[in-house]
Every structure is written in C-alpha cells, then in structure tokens.
Design a protein around this nucleic acid. Structure first.
Lengths: 257, 257
DNA sequence: GCTCATTCGTGCGGTAGCGGACAGACTCGC
DNA sequence: GCGAGTCTGTCCGCTACCGCACGAATGAGC
C-alpha cells in the first residue's frame, strides 16, 4: 500500500531567456505573436508550497503563469472558514482580476504544489494590454473558462460528498503535478474543500483501501486514474472539458489577432 | 401575519425610443458616450416569470440588460440537481459569456421576477465591441464583479445554513423588486439554493414567526430589512459591496474611454 | 538513537439536511 | 359552488458531516 511513494521527482526549469518554448500554455499560445515582445517583461520564479501570492483585498503586484507550480484561489469567510474556488496550473493564469481592470483580488492565492512559474508585473500587464489583440483575447477566453469552472464549483460544494470531491481534487493535482507523487497533507485538502480533516481522512483511507491512491505523511499519489475518475464527481470531467475547449478554441480566438 | 401581501404592484416601463434614461445601470453608465449609437440596437422586452432565456450549452442569441426583471443563472448537474450561481437585476447583464468571446452559455438563465429588460442581439454586441472602449471596459469591470460574487457563492453554499441563505436570497430579490411583494414560491427558492423545499418551508416559517418576512401562496415580502440582514449570512453584504464598488468605480473605468 | 513536530486514524455525541410522503389550505377557472 | 392545480406545513427514518478530542505512527533534526 505504500507503492510509488518515495523521493519526490522535480523536473528541470526553463530559462526566461528564450529558446525554450514556454511551459505555460497561455504563454505558449502567444508564440509567434506577442511573445517576443513580452518576453523581456517575464521573470522566472520558483514558488514554494504554502507560499501566499495574494491576500484577499490586497493590491496585486504580479500576475503568474504557472509551469509546474499549482496555485489555489481561496475564499475566506469572516469566521475563518475557507474554500477553494479554483485550482490553477500550467493551463491558466493567476491574477485574472488585473486583466479585468481591477486592482485588488477578492481571493487569496496560495501555492499548493511548489514549482516554477513565469510572472509579470501588474503594471507591465496593463501596459501590454493597451497593445490589445492577442493577449487581450486570450485572457478574455480564459476568463470565460474560469467562470464556467467556478460556477461548477458552486454546484459541486452544494451537492457532492467529501469522497467524490477528494477524488476530484487529487485528480486535478495529479494532472498538474510534474511528478508521480505530490505533497498534500490531509489538513490542506480539508481547507481546500472547506470540510473537517477527519472527513478527508475517512475518504482518503477508503480510496486507498481500493488501491486507487497511495499516501503517507503528506506525500500523495494517484495509482489508478481511470477508477479514481469513476469515484470522482462529474465536476472533474467538466473542468477538464472546459480547459480542453479553451485550448482547442485558441486558434479561433487568436485567428485574426 | 399576512401584512402587506395583496395585489402585486408593477411599475411603468420605459420606452426604447430615447428620452427616458435607461433603468439598467450598465446602460445608464454609457449615457454620453456610446449610448446613442447603441440605442437603435436595443429592444425593450417584457420577461415573464419562469421564462428560460438560455439553456445550458446552447447558443446565446441576445444579451439582456434587466430593468425590473430579475434573472438567475443556474447550474444543473447530470442528475438534475440545480443551484443558483448568480442573481442578476438592473445592476447587471445577462450574457456575459458573449462578451467574453464565447458562443454558448455554460449555465441556464431563468427569469425569477417578471419585468422589463432591454436586449441586444449577440451579433450586434460583437460588432459593437469592435468599437471598443467604453462598453468594453464596462463589461470587463462587470465580469470582475460577477467573478467575486460567484466566488463568494462557493463559500456560501459550503458553509452557510439554509435559513441564512434564504434570508440572503430574499434580501436580494427584494432589493431588485420594484414592488413590496414579489412572486417566489418556496419550490423556486429551494431550486435556487439546491436544497429541499421542506427545508425552505421550515426556514421561511421561522423567519415569518419573527415578523421579518411575510408570504402566502408564492407571494413574498420583506418586512424588516435590517433584522433580516442580521439573520442572513455575510454574503448578502459582501455582494452589495461588490456591486456598490462596481458602480462607484465606473468613473475610473470609463474615465478615459 | 532520541526528541519532537507533523500527520493521520478514530471515536463520540450532536445536528442539519436528506428522501419520501401526505394532508391541509388556498386560488383560479369553470 | 365545485373541482383541479398549486402551494405550504409537517412528519418519519436516515445519512453525512460537524465539533471536539485523543492517541498512534511517522519522519526530520539533533
């Protein structure tokens, strides 16, 4: 039952100085259009797990284009209870609100899985957006995707049980994780789902008993994606479909950039 | 206990042919900029309660700028269970996805309170957006507001009880309703919150017992806003704050249109 | 090898909300 | 005035999850 859990793998990181194609797919989509111009404004950073990128209601300084890193957008209530409203990996952008004309973020952004990301200052992004076209359209399209995903999250937290949601989350993290295992203690899962850690414990041990996942002391891995998807709620597939549509729609969106 | 509930009031409606300032605040914000040009493309319609404006995954034909009408965006799961992800009245727009470059809507749009709305064809909106500036910025800002609201909805459905959420919903409807009472059977409330009607029945009779609301046979009215707000979750205030910020931010947003 | 912080399993009583169901009350149409 | 349809109140057993709490296992640091 401890299969596959051991030393964690970490892939090499790309350089910001060109040559290597960007790992973040939003940036990759800009290859051949704006990418060369914005490249100097991009900076490569390594995000640590647990790092807070944004605090709620605070001014945003940078937008992030994750590579291996995975970031959660988290909404906190007055009494301190939390819930995740979106998981962002190499298919997305952290800092959508800047693009949407805002200055602050309503949510907290917390790094879930350590790894590399490219970032750009909010100021540069605003300047860049004046040049308009490709980046603008891309971000509009991403906003649409994100809106659909978060909308599904409302239904998910209303109607789906803990075990299904744990399965969904682990599938999502596994999808973005560069390695077979990733660091994710049950307490973090509980905070993301907005439930008790004890509830996560029960769900996780149940999934482990069926051989779908493996974990020990915060190191978690998905063993059987297919079967785990069956245990997950429809939301995982829904979200994947949204991101797939986002990507396959890019040619149309950027068509006459 | 049946105070104030009787014949329902309905205010007069504005004409699309100019003169009268628009009742939808997004349109109103365009006065002096784009409004005159887009006016001929706007059409006044009266929306019936229960009317479906969009079905999920269906192509959007019109965007709506509600006046007295109130529309709910509803997410449905495979098993038919539903939940509301946003209530849109005269402060908003139905059809954000078109603006965001989409063609279809992920959610269903269902008219909750009958009333007037202006509408524009999706095609005209797309054309209009090419001219850019004011409308574009306005919609970006609205998208940001909507994102914050829906994000709070996730936390709300995860952490708040039925009674609090019923209070929140009724406050919201009352805010948009032109009349003191509005038509809203418990079954509809239950569908919006994604809970059993029986649960709504208990919550509502509890609130009524305290004299905060009144209702009979689908006709509901808020009697004591202040006290009802205390019974509601923080989400109501949060949402009001977002919309207030949206409005007070309009000068900045449109500043150099 | 021992210590200590972290992580995980588990148990208990309590509760909110579920699914299903039914009866009473009201209202509209005829 | 009557029947049909709608809306609301309520009841049942049941499950999922809560809040709280404690002990055991693990692994990292010394």
């Amino acid at each position: 039952m401890t299969a596959k859990i051991g030393t964690r793998g970490q892939r090499g990181r790309s350089s910001a100085t060109g040559g290597v194609p960007p790992r973040n797919i939003v940036l990759a989509a800009l290859l051949g259009t704006q990418y060369k111009r914005i490249l100097p404004k991009l900076e490569h950073v390594t995000l640590r797990g647990g790092q807070t990128l944004y605090r709620a209601e605070q001014e945003i300084e940078h937008v992030y284009f994750p590579e291996e890193a995975v970031v959660a957008m988290i909404d906190s209530l007055d009494d301190g209870r939390t819930v995740e409203v979106g998981i962002i990996g190499r298919e997305g952008i952290v800092g959508l609100n800047i693009f949407l004309g805002g200055v602050v973020t309503p949510d907290k952004a917390l790094v879930q899985l350590a790894g590399g990301a490219m970032r750009m200052s909010a100021k540069d992004l605003r300047t860049e957006l004046r040049f308009g076209s490709p980046l603008q359209l891309l971000l509009l399209s991403y906003a649409r995707t994100f809106l659909a995903v978060i909308s599904q999250s409302v239904a998910c937290s209303q109607h789906h049980g803990i075990e299904q949601r744990v399965a969904r989350l682990l599938l999502t993290l596994d999808h973005y994780a560069g390695s077979a295992e990733f660091s994710m203690p049950q307490a973090s899962i509980a905070a993301l789902l907005g439930v008790r850690r004890a509830g996560v414990s029960e769900a996780a041990s149940h999934l482990r008993a069926q051989g779908l996942i493996a974990y020990r002391r915060g190191l978690t891995g998905v063993l059987e994606r297919r079967d785990l998807e069956k245990r997950s709620c429809e939301c995982y597939r829904f979200i994947r479909r949204q991101y797939a549509a986002f990507q396959s729609d890019l040619p149309r969106v950027l068509g006459r950039g």
